[in-house]
């Protein structure tokens, strides 16, 4: 087998381990302590924020405008509406500020 194929297979196994690993560890405990439960409830905001914050900080006015508009739309509209609004502002603003 080629090296490429080995990289793909090993990468796939490593990825699956991350996707099932947290469950395997947590399911060993009979009762989940309230503080652990509070931590688990914080997972979505905690992880997803890290995919936005550094990218936003390193961006420019066009990207900031897109994020602000998308954030405001998300207060009222659904995910699709906020995404399309943000993308539209981004494409439009980049025509002017590159």
């Amino acid at each position: 087998m080629s090296t490429t194929l080995w990289i793909i297979i090993a990468g796939a196994i490593a990825t699956y381990l991350t996707r099932i690993g947290g469950h395997l560890v947590i399911s060993r405990f009979e009762n989940i302590h309230p503080r652990v439960e509070a931590g688990l409830n914080a997972v979505p905001a905690a992880v997803l924020t890290t995919l936005v914050a550094p990218a936003a900080l390193g961006a420019g006015p066009a990207e900031w405008a897109a994020l602000i508009v998308a954030g405001l739309v998300s207060l009222r509209g659904g995910l699709m509406a906020m995404f399309l609004a943000g993308a539209a502002v981004l494409v439009l603003a980049r025509q002017f500020v590159g």
């Binding site: 979505p44 997803l48 936005v52 936003a56 990207e63 994020l67 998308a70 998300s74 207060l75």
Partner: peptide, 10 residues
């Protein structure tokens, strides 16, 4: 990043 912001806001 725009899409993930939407997920965070959710």
């Amino acid at each position: 990043p725009i899409y993930f912001l939407g997920l965070v806001m959710g």
